[in-house]
Design a protein around this nucleic acid. Structure first.
Lengths: 148, 148
DNA sequence: TAAAACCTGTGAGCAACTCACAGGTCAATG
DNA sequence: CATTGACCTGTGAGTTGCTCACAGGTTTTA
């Protein structure tokens, strides 16, 4: 299998295959004649696994670690489970943040719709954003937590 | 106000202030003596607005567009409202995707816990990720109202 | 035999910052 | 009055996970 073959088989961009190879997730052999990369069924399995793990939100370094662990599959890898549970917690955190955000947005919208003029225009929204209550900013402390 | 002053006033990193200035969101004047940037109360308002809009998920180009519209505030800006509603729809889509993801993850976890060996080890998870059903990420057409 | 399609590696671009660097400026202390 | 330390300046690079562009080599196809 050459780049385009494995890319088609996993339904990804050939450049993604090249990128993953650069990143060490795939280890193709080389055709000595033309130096082309040769992927086998195991590479395809790794690629598919990587794509699925990406959909679950795992980072490339995490995936590489899992794959490397699986490479010499003597021992089970409790690390995988740990990463999985961390990721689940993260997903739940993201969900509640987004839900809070949605609530603020919809309540703002309905508040505007009850205003004299009905549906809010741009200016109204601008003013509302300016006076937005941003208490639920979990982000700020994490991002510039080093101040003062 | 110099960079650090306005940064403190808005509780952001001074580098963010410099970055926003580079990006044209802030237009400080210059002290002719030392070429330092001088920010005024209006810059601070713009900066605070930008931060709040960022929390709502607006992109910098969008924020700049809004700010520029507000600059020559002859006309109301229906664009703002449109962007706001688009953003709300996006947030709702993200929420439902994440909820689907969480559901798959938790059901996998509980399924594993009911397995003979109890809590799943890494290998089990690897195999499960490999056989992960990844249908739900592709389509966007079926994004009608969801609830929690 | 020549064009099209593919291969190679490398480097840049996206978003929204954050940090590092090197050199200039300013306030306060000794 | 000189030195320190905190701040200022602009620029360039790093982050994440790709995607695209480029220039040149190879293979396939017509």
């Amino acid at each position: 299998m050459k780049v385009k073959d494995i890319a088609n088989a996993a339904a990804v961009n050939p450049d993604t295959v090249r990128f993953y190879t650069r990143e060490g997730l795939l280890n193709p052999s080389r055709n000595p004649d033309n130096n082309y990369q040769q992927f086998d069924a195991d590479d395809l399995r790794r690629l598919r696994f990587a794509r699925k793990a990406r959909q679950l939100g795992f980072s490339l370094p995490e995936i590489r670690a899992i794959l490397d662990q699986a490479e010499d599959h003597h021992s089970p890898c409790p690390m995988v489970r740990e990463v999985f549970e961390q990721r689940l917690a993260e997903v739940e955190r993201e969900i509640s943040e987004l839900q809070a955000l949605r609530k603020r947005m919809t309540s703002a919208l309905t508040a505007w719709q009850h205003m004299p003029d009905g549906t809010p225009d741009g200016h109204t929204i601008c003013r509302l954003i300016e006076h937005w209550d941003d208490t639920p900013t979990v982000n700020t402390s994490a991002v510039n937590g080093n101040k003062e």
